[in-house]
Design a protein around this nucleic acid. Structure first.
Lengths: 247, 247
DNA sequence: CCCGGTCCTTGATCCATCGCAAAGTCCGTC
DNA sequence: GACGGACTTTGCGATGGATCAAGGACCGGG
């Protein structure tokens, strides 16, 4: 797990062109926009000059739901929590954003969710209108971004199925395997699955209570399916987890 | 409840215009593509020549989940049910498509859901690749379609909140007021709210069982909040419904 | 007008998950 | 190295919605 913490280093070195959170592409060139979603290099190069760095400390707000959406973001390091809250305080965490993920890509006038940082986060900020104009001029790029939004929509439908029809065990298992896959895609796969979010965040993501999340994880641990370790879990019985999360 | 059946004649003349699937725009011209989502006329005119009519009978399948997505559709009349099914038969109805709604707009390689008709349906079919090419050449149009997808994504997040955190009463109330709004937007608003889908569809949409849906509707009826009528409901106490569905 | 099928409603009971309360753990700070 | 605060775990009892089991309403066809 300590490997993952390495690139974060000093969180903020302002004006220098190559701060710690720049990711490297295959050629070793520093990149501000890190697109695990596999935007072609040419498109990344188009976007890059438009961006400004943003750094967030732990638990800082990036933007709030219904605020005028004046920026689009691409996460560089750390993780964001995306959520909505009802007037009475009930919360639904709609998702988490990891390095490479875009946030606010649907470019509506107002943000559909609130976003804050789980730990220290760096991201690229794009001024929405400029982003929009640029993208408008590059149909290929726009198609790619549209496709990314389409994938997010498909995942939203996975979530509906999960929230509407699956049991607590299945929700937890699906959550864990889903995280695994995301980590693999951003090259962070490892024996231990890091859980940068707390139990309450998981509960509010999966439509459960914190107690049910805790109990379910404990049971999976007791059954030697996973091993609860500080900061995450280690998957012991992958096939059982896959079975539970099968869809 | 039997009282309610007395005074209500035949309130739901099936909303089939003649010729059934063409909608009229302000000028009275017949249109194949009916875009309640307010695509500018110019953009509709661009799309129209690409489309082919599709007609479905009751309960016919338009496409199945994971099938290669070779078409994009725009519903003209009737309503579609969009859903996913787990291997063991549990179903999540992710939504319903009404006249003006696009289906398959995210243009992934495979359909993210299955779609079938609740009653007779007509729609415009666009060959996906041609649609894609055309749209690529019209950045403004593509932005609009992207925005529509963004709105769908936002509604998907509403659904997550609903499925993850709201009570059965609230789910039903939210479902009803949501339908009201959609009907208003397509100019179908009326005292009685037509429910073209069965109780089981509502249950599978809201993450409930058919019994809970039936009981909840019955209770709202008993409490004089709504009136259950054949084919739909009449809203009696709008403010209570709005209160329950408040977000 | 009756028959059979499908859908809807209602009652009785069950159970997965919730809600509350009390420890327990971790971690940073003084 | 002990204190405080935030988070997590666990036990126990409560409950909203599920499940099981009858009926009832509606509808099309013969």
């Amino acid at each position: 797990m300590s490997i993952h913490l390495l690139p974060v280093g000093r969180p903020f070195v302002p004006p220098v062109p190559i701060p710690p959170s720049y990711l490297l592409d295959g050629v070793g060139k520093a990149r501000l926009v890190s697109l695990s979603t596999a935007l072609p290099l040419a498109e990344r190069d188009t976007l890059e000059p438009l961006s400004r760095r943003v750094s967030l400390d732990q638990k800082e707000t990036l933007f709030g739901q219904d605020e005028p959406a004046c920026s689009v973001f691409n996460v560089t390091s750390g993780a964001l929590r995306l959520y909505r809250i009802l007037p009475d305080g009930r919360r639904q965490v709609t998702g988490f954003a990891f390095p490479g993920d875009f946030v606010g890509l649907s470019m509506l006038d107002r943000y559909a969710v609130s976003a804050d940082s789980l730990g220290p986060v760096t991201a690229c900020r794009f001024e929405r209108l400029a982003f929009r104009d640029l993208v408008c001029r590059q149909p290929g790029l726009m198609m790619h971004l549209h496709e990314i939004t389409g994938q997010e929509l498909s995942r939203a439908k996975d979530m509906m199925m999960l929230l509407g029809r699956r049991t607590a065990d299945e929700r937890i298992a699906t959550f864990l395997t889903g995280l695994q896959e995301r980590y693999v895609r951003i090259g962070r796969s490892s024996v231990t699955l890091e859980l940068p979010m707390g139990r309450l965040d998981i509960a509010d993501h999966l439509g459960l209570t914190i107690e049910t999340v805790s109990r379910t994880l404990s049971r999976l641990d007791r059954d030697r399916c996973i091993l609860i370790v500080p900061g995450g879990v280690r998957v012991i019985d992958q096939s059982r987890l896959d079975l539970l999360s099968a869809h």
